[in-house]
């Protein structure tokens, strides 16, 4: 059975069971590395992507729920050659250790900043609550998102 998904602006035809969680389709069928498998339970946020304007756990979201939605992954924010403002902020703050949680953090932050471009540090901390980091990069992640707030305001 095939399903139509719109991912990063591209229409994709996916031949997978309709209850397949989006995460596996993104990573395997569409070869997008941004969203990560962390728990498969919606507990850690490593798989976070944006559907329309909402951050979702792609590991517990079956693709059948996403027809007609605009899905965005980390790859939509920019490229290594032309990083987007949030990506550049994470580079500038060196906000990664192992980096495995970072794409999920960034997508949740991106959804926050689209909704609230002037997010404060307190708001950023609250917004990122669902996402776990084990390396202890939290201070840098917060700083990077704040830096992106400034960068986007100046842009």
């Amino acid at each position: 059975m095939s399903i139509q998904l719109n991912v990063n602006g591209q229409d994709e035809t996916i031949d997978s069971a309709t209850d397949t969680p989006l995460l596996y389709v993104l990573r395997n069928d569409l070869r997008l590395n941004g969203a990560k498998f962390g728990c498969g339970l919606g507990q850690c946020g490593a798989c976070t992507v944006i559907a329309d304007d909402q951050p979702i756990f792609s590991c517990v979201t079956p693709i059948m729920m996403l027809e007609g939605r605009k899905i965005r992954t980390l790859e939509s924010l920019g490229t290594e050659e032309h990083p987007g403002p949030l990506q550049q902020a994470f580079i500038d703050e060196q906000a990664a250790q192992c980096g495995y949680c970072i794409p999920g953090m960034m997508m949740r932050a991106q959804a926050l900043l689209e909704r609230n471009p002037k997010a404060t540090e307190a708001e950023i901390r609250v917004a990122l609550e669902p996402n776990l980091c084990r390396c202890g990069t939290h201070m840098r992640i917060i700083r990077a998102v704040l830096r992106a707030v400034d960068a986007m305001a100046g842009a």
């Binding site: 290594e80 990664a96 980096g99």
Partner: peptide, 12 residues
């Protein structure tokens, strides 16, 4: 490795 991590390059 951070530019690759934040843009979705093959890293892991």
């Amino acid at each position: 490795d951070i530019p690759g991590i934040v843009t979705g390059a093959v890293t892991y």
